[in-house]
Amino acid sequence: MHPALSVIFLTTLIGAGQGLFLALFTGESYAAINIIPEQRHQFFAVGGLIVLMLLIAGLVASFFHLGHPERAWRAVTQWRTSWLSREVIILPLVMLLVALWSIAHYLEWNPTLLGMELGSEITLTLGAVTSAAVFLLYIATAMIYASIRFLREWASPLTVINFTLLGAASGFLLATAYATNYAQNLVNFYGGWAMILTLAAWFSRSAALIRNARLKPKSTIQSAIGIRHSQIAQKSMGMMGGSYNTREYFHGASRMVLRLIKWLALVLTFPLPLLLIWFGMSSDNAQLILIALFVQYLGLLFERWLFFAQANHPQNIYYQTVG
């Protein structure tokens, strides 16, 4: 498939935003049971704002993918059958919940009910609901791709696992970088999680790459035109100036470039950030963590590009030779 920048930015930005929320909420809930030191409300309120900005940035990017963004509201109607529709519903829902959660923190909302102070119960409950919605959003985003059964590079549970782990890893790394400024006592906590998640994502993304390398196409030129012969060669695809079919479904990069991007994606997303986080944490160097964040995001852009480029659409069988 042809990787569209709008979708690359959409999926990486909201993935990181969702991950950051999970990180913030993990911090909040761990603190509630006194495993880690408690943070000021402002830490969560500002963090929530960053999550929101990432989600909005992703949403804006997604509009560039649409021919008629002004009709986008129609996309909420087919949630019964379409994962895209489900994503379109869950994304604003997550935004709303994150906004409520951040506002509750910002106002340090502490209503009393029947003489009891609710205090952190409210944000904890709201945060738990939001986290559930965040996971649903990961699933919905990934299922858009994983549900197309003949794009076999995508049609695997690994797609859902990768979107979730990669998003969470970048989100926790972002939380680490955020903590270096505003909550130094959480840097190791977030950094540790960022490393664990990055490692897990490295493992599952590699599994997907290995799976892709071993896939045998189900459709062949024989099944595509229904002629039983071992020697079939296309002599003309019916037009010479190209068409949507030749533009949308081919990445157009050479083998060399594809391999280069694969290695860039792997190195920038996994080992390099891991090393940087490790050194950053052990030498208390906030700069290194920030560099790790940008290196990994860059890696994720390449990773997402590769994700699209590697998907080999069966329609390509019909578009092998111009004429």
Binding site: M1, H65, L66, G67, H68, P69, R71, A72, R74, A75, S82, L84, I144, I148, F150, L151, S219, S243, Y244, N245, E248, Y249, H313, P314, Q315, N316, Y318, Y319
Partner: peptide, 23 residues
Amino acid sequence: KCIGCKYCSWACPYGAREIDEQQ
């Protein structure tokens, strides 16, 4: 009603759908 998201064209194994670049 179409918003031009192209998702349907990805889901057609035959490449039978083509977006109208102007509409």
